[in-house]
Structures are given as structure tokens and as C-alpha cells.
């Protein structure tokens, strides 16, 4: 193991230890790992599985089931645009196509189904920041600032 890998293995074991006493710790652990490293990669899955006494298949199954968990890091800034029904009714579909063209490959524009701001769409989220009432001008500003 390389030094970086050892450090990561150690950090993930500490994360698991922090959550070890709670019931059903896997999701909180995976959230913490992803917050630390931006993804839950194969090496992380191996460490988590070992530390929680689960099989790698079980952990892999959970990581791949949930939309939130990534197996590879996303180096680009991420903008999550809501494209569920309430935002569709307020014009999210043409806006999404426009945003994709505007952002090009510089920004990852991801689809999210509902941010709970359904009376004020189209809506988007960057990190934990939420933005409502988006039109081309407002969304363009967000994209350019990323």
C-alpha cells in the first residue's frame, strides 16, 4: 500500500469507528466517506466492508443503489437542476437544454427530482445552496460563477 492509500484506509477506519456504536451505520458511514473524498471508490468499499464486517458485495450493492453515492470523483463543479413535474410545469425542460449548452463540458449539470421548492421553479442546487425562480439570466449567472 502506498502512503496515501494507508492514510485513506486509516481515515476511513476512524470514520467507521465514529459511527460504530449506532444502529445501521452503513449509510452514515458512506455519507461521511463521500464528504471526505468526493466519492466512494473501490478501495473505500474494501475498507468499509472490512471495518463493518460486511462483504464487499453488500457494500458495493448499497453504494450502487443510491443516486447520491459516486464511485468516481467528479472534478468539475456540479449544478443540480430539478426536472420533476412541478418544475416541468414552469419551464424546466427548455431551460435544462439551454443550461447544458451554456455550461458545455466545463460544469456537470445533473438532474435532481425535486428540491421541495415546487411553487417557485425552475430550481437548482449547488452544494447545499438552493436557487429558485430561475430563468436564463439567473441560471446563466450561476453557471458563469461556477
Amino acid at each position: 500500500m502506498e502512503i496515501d492509500d494507508r492514510a485513506k484506509d486509516q481515515t476511513i477506519r476512524e470514520i467507521v469507528a465514529e459511527h460504530g456504536m449506532i444502529e445501521g451505520p452503513l449509510l452514515p458511514v458512506l455519507h461521511a466517506v463521500q464528504a471526505e473524498y468526493g466519492c466512494v471508490d473501490e478501495a473505500s468499499i474494501r475498507t468499509v466492508a472490512h471495518a463493518l464486517n460486511l462483504s464487499r458485495a453488500e457494500v458495493h450493492g448499497v453504494v450502487s443503489f443510491y443516486h447520491d453515492f459516486r464511485k468516481l470523483p467528479e472534478p468539475r463543479p456540479i449544478l443540480r437542476l430539478c426536472r420533476a413535474e412541478a418544475c416541468q410545469a414552469r419551464g424546466s425542460e427548455p431551460l435544462a437544454a439551454w443550461a447544458q449548452a451554456r455550461a458545455g463540458s466545463r460544469i456537470a449539470i445533473e438532474t435532481v427530482y425535486c428540491l421541495g421548492l415546487c411553487s417557485a421553479g425552475p430550481n437548482a442546487m449547488i452544494g447545499t445552496d438552493v436557487h429558485a425562480r430561475l430563468d436564463r439570466a439567473a441560471l446563466g449567472e450561476l453557471i458563469d460563477a461556477l
Binding site: 420533476a84 413535474e85 412541478a86 418544475c87 427530482y113 425535486c114 421541495g116 421548492l117 415546487c118 411553487s119
Partner: peptide, 11 residues
């Protein structure tokens, strides 16, 4: 886990 589009009362 209020996932329905068009709902926000739980939030």
C-alpha cells in the same frame, strides 16, 4: 423522505 414533486409541507 418527501420525494413527491409538488410537495414541500414536510420540509
Amino acid at each position: 423522505d418527501e420525494g413527491d414533486s409538488g410537495t414541500f409541507a414536510d420540509r
